[in-house]
Amino acid sequence: MSVLVVLAVIGIVAVVIGRQLAGEPLRGKRVLLLPAILAVVGVSQLSGQGEHPTTPDVGLLVAGAVVAAGIGAGQGSVMRLENRGGALWGQLPVIGLWLWGALIASRVLTTLVASALHAHVAASSAAILLMLSVNRLGQAAVITRRVLSSGVPFAPEKDGKVFMGNRFGREN
């Protein structure tokens, strides 16, 4: 299962990076709800490990989450946001790749420290998905704050509704 999780996360990260670098309309559900769903999956993966987290596990998971959220906030801060056709469009500048590199390096470092401390839960592949979701939630928090202050609504969802459209004077 751990190899499958790692491959899935690599695939998710590759798609997310590619989409962010190319730029795309930013839909609220993708920005906010998808990371929340990933977080639930990550927590369930961790709890389904069969091992109880030790004190080093908890400490490393919390530290990793703080770092991942901080890097996500940085990603949200550097994201270029534009009004295109009355809806939000975003693109991560190439410099944002450094933040992705920092996220990957932080996870590798956390895994090495966790392995040395025999913190098997924090070193597990299940923690990768949780940290990715925390990173995306950090980015979503900053983007949402920027969106609300700009007055430019999220791009319409596939059904034509605008997520949080009532905040922008649009009916959902």
Rank of each mutant, 00 (worst) to 15 (best):
M1E: 00
S2A: 14
V3M: 15
V6K: 11
V6W: 10
V9I: 05
V9S: 00
V13F: 01
V16W: 14
I17Y: 04
G18C: 03
G18W: 10
R19E: 13
R19W: 08
Q20M: 13
Q20G: 03
A22F: 02
A22Q: 13
G28P: 07
G28C: 04
K29H: 12
R30Y: 15
R30N: 12
R30W: 10
V31N: 04
V31Y: 01
L32H: 09
L34R: 14
P35I: 03
A36D: 03
L38F: 09
L38E: 02
L38W: 05
A39M: 14
V41A: 10
V43F: 11
S44K: 12
S47H: 11
S47I: 15
S47R: 13
G48N: 05
T54P: 01
T55P: 02
V58M: 06
L61H: 08
V66E: 04
V66N: 02
V66R: 08
A68H: 04
A69G: 10
I71F: 03
I71D: 00
G72C: 07
G76L: 02
G76Q: 00
R80W: 14
N83F: 11
G86A: 03
A87Q: 09
A87Y: 11
W89L: 00
W89C: 01
G90L: 00
L92T: 09
L92H: 03
L92G: 09
P93H: 05
I95D: 12
I95M: 14
I95K: 13
W98R: 13
W100E: 05
W100A: 03
G101E: 08
A102E: 05
S106R: 03
V108I: 12
L109N: 12
T110M: 08
T111H: 11
V113I: 10
V113P: 03
A114K: 02
A114L: 07
A116C: 11
L117F: 08
L117N: 05
L117G: 01
H118C: 04
H120S: 11
V121T: 02
V121C: 04
A126F: 01
A127I: 00
I128Y: 06
I128A: 12
M131I: 10
M131T: 11
M131D: 07
V134H: 01
R136V: 04
L137Q: 01
G138R: 02
G138M: 06
V142I: 15
I143C: 08
I143W: 06
T144E: 13
R145T: 02
R146F: 08
V147K: 02
V147Q: 04
V147S: 06
S149D: 12
S149C: 10
S150P: 00
A155Q: 05
A155G: 06
P156S: 09
E157S: 07
K161A: 13
F163G: 11
G165Q: 12
F168L: 08
F168Q: 03
G169S: 11
R170A: 10
R170S: 10
E171H: 09
E171M: 13
